[in-house]
Structures are given as C-alpha cells and as structure tokens.
Computed example of a mutant assay.
Amino acid sequence: MAEPSAATLLEVRDLSMHFPVTSAGVLRRVVGQVKAVDGVSFCVREGETLSVVGESGCGKTTLGRCIMRIYDPTAGSIRYRTRNEGEVVDLTALDGRALRPYRRDIRMIFQDPYASLNPRMTVEEIVGEPLVLAGHPRNKALHRRVGDLLEQVGLRREYMARYPHAFSGGERQRIGIARALSLNPRLLVADEAVSALDVSVQAQTINLLKKLQVEYKLTYVFIAHDLSVVEYISDRVAVMYVGKLVELAPTRALFARPAHPYTEALLSAVPIPDPRLRKKVERIRLAGEIADPSNVPSGCPFHTRCAYSDGNRCVREVPALRTLEDDRQVACHYAETLELKGAPQVAT
C-alpha cells in the first residue's frame, strides 16, 4: 500500500472484521469465522469521494460500519487526521467518551430513508437531535439552525413541524442528510444512500451531495452497487470481493481499463443509455455464486469464478494488493498481462 500523503484524512490499514460462527446446542462453541472484512488497506484523501463497490455480501457495508465504529474491528487500524493541527489518532484504540469528538466529525447517511427516521419525532426534533445530544440548548438558535439545514438540502423551513410520514422517499433522504450535516462533519459515510430511491430522485440527491461537498468541504466514503452512480460521483473507486480489496483506482482509469477480472465483470453490467448499442455489448456472466466468507477458497478468492485463472498459482497463492501505474492498486497475479474491457459506454 502506498504511504498516506499530507492530504490523507483517513487511513485504513490491515482492517479485519470477523464474526464468530457457533455450533448448535448448549455449549455454543466457536467453530469458524465469517471474514466479512479481511485485511483491507486504503487511504481517503481530504475532499474526495471514494466509492466502495462489489456484490452483496462482499463486506462493503461492514467496512463502512467499522469506519463509523458501529463495529469494533477484529484487527487493524483506522487512523484519522484530526482538526487539531493534523494530529493523527487510531479510532480503533478509542471507546466510549474518547470517541465522542470523532462521532461529530464522521457521520453516516443510511440506505433506507423510511427506517432511518423516527416516525414519532418531528423533522425539527430529528435534525436537531445530534445537536441536543452534543449539548446545544433547545432554544431559538437551535430552531434557526435546523431551518438553515433544511434549506441547505432543498427543503422549506415550514416543514420542521411535520412528521416523516408526510414526506416522499427523496425528501426523507434529504432530512437524513440534513441530520448528518448538523454537527459540521468532515467525513460522511453514505451507505447505499440512493439505492432505495427512484432514478430521477437519485440524480437529484447525487447532485445535492456534490453541491454540499463543495459548500461544506466534505469528504465522502460512498458505498454503492450502482456503477452508473459511482462513475458520476466518485474520484476513486475501491472494488471489494469476499472481504478483500481487489482493485483501487481513479474512476476514469478504472472504467476505461480495469486491471482485475472481477472489476471487468462488474463493469460489463453497466447499463447503456443508447438502446441501439446494447446488443453490441456482451455481458460477462460469472459462473457460480460469490464465495462463502466463512469458507473462503484457497489462493485468490475469485479464482473459482475467474475465466483467466491458471489453475495453479491462482489456486495456491493469495495475490497481494500492489501498486501499478496511474495511482492504481490491484490484487491479481496477472494484472500486467491481462487485456480487460472497460465499461460499455467507454469502450463503444
């Protein structure tokens, strides 16, 4: 892994999150582990959007929850550069009260705009709750602050007295974004933040996030599976497979010329806007199912589905994540020799 630069806001190093598998019966012995995240390393640069992509079950949501310290990682470190003259702290070494200052700086936007808002609270209470928990008094200043936040996300101040049921999915997600912004964070972890929304509303929400990023000088870790959205919003893309990082590259380079066969397969499924070109593009359909994270195959975890596997080194040896040209990292034994196809809209 490349050394973090002075602009690095967050550095994840050798991060693992393993969940125990217990046997049936009274004793409940630990008989295995689900390796949801397994030795992941990357940096998040200040002001950028780093997207994390992969199939369901690849570990991307677990990774986001580890960054948020919702989960206590099994191993590794999450090094965060604070506001205090660049002081760096390891968030995995903190707990309880020691984490409170960093929970203000690192906030989350949740996937489900319906489940993430308390139906018994008004919009003013929902957006203002983080401020109240941080010690802000319930006064006119708080009322004004909530109104300002609503306007920042494109909602009217008059909505403060309403309850979540009065809003559409897109409006509810805007309320969730306003809540995430309430403590002036530096880093937002967006976990499938637009996947539950209609396509037109997705575009509006993505444009809002891009606007807020400039206004608030935000850094995003954007967890998603829709590569069309990822291409539009991201500066760099990290691809995960069965708990491991298999490729990380600048967005344009990754979409034009992937270096890992799994990335190539994902990009082949990117929808093509022009219906006349759809028949010209052959989608790569991977054989079998995604590997079981509690029983990961030997060698490269992708070799059981990879059309380029040599049946020898790929089966025996786990490929290390190494740095290639163009600020790209890849975990594939044959990345330098493979000629892989990019996303259809780029390749055609």
Score class of each variant (00 low, 15 high):
N118S: 12
L150E: 00
A190Y: 04
A161M: 11
R162F: 06
V153G: 01
L183K: 14
M121E: 15
K140N: 06
V127R: 01
I177S: 10
L133Q: 13
R120F: 13
R172M: 01
P137G: 03
R145C: 04
L131V: 06
H143L: 05
G154L: 09
H143A: 00
P119S: 09
R120P: 08
L133W: 07
G135E: 12
H136F: 13
R144Q: 15
N139R: 09
R174F: 07
A180P: 04
G176V: 04
G176Y: 11
Q152Y: 01
R145E: 04
A178T: 08
E129Y: 05
M160I: 06
I177P: 00
Y163R: 11
A190L: 12
Q173N: 03
V146N: 07
Q152N: 08
L181Q: 01
P130S: 10
P119F: 10
G170S: 05
G135S: 13
V146W: 00
L150Q: 03
T122Y: 08
E124I: 02
N184R: 15
A166F: 03
A180C: 09
E129M: 13
L183R: 13
Q173L: 11
N184E: 14
E158K: 10
V189P: 09
L131P: 05
S182R: 01
G154A: 08
V127Q: 09
S182L: 07
A166K: 09
R157V: 05
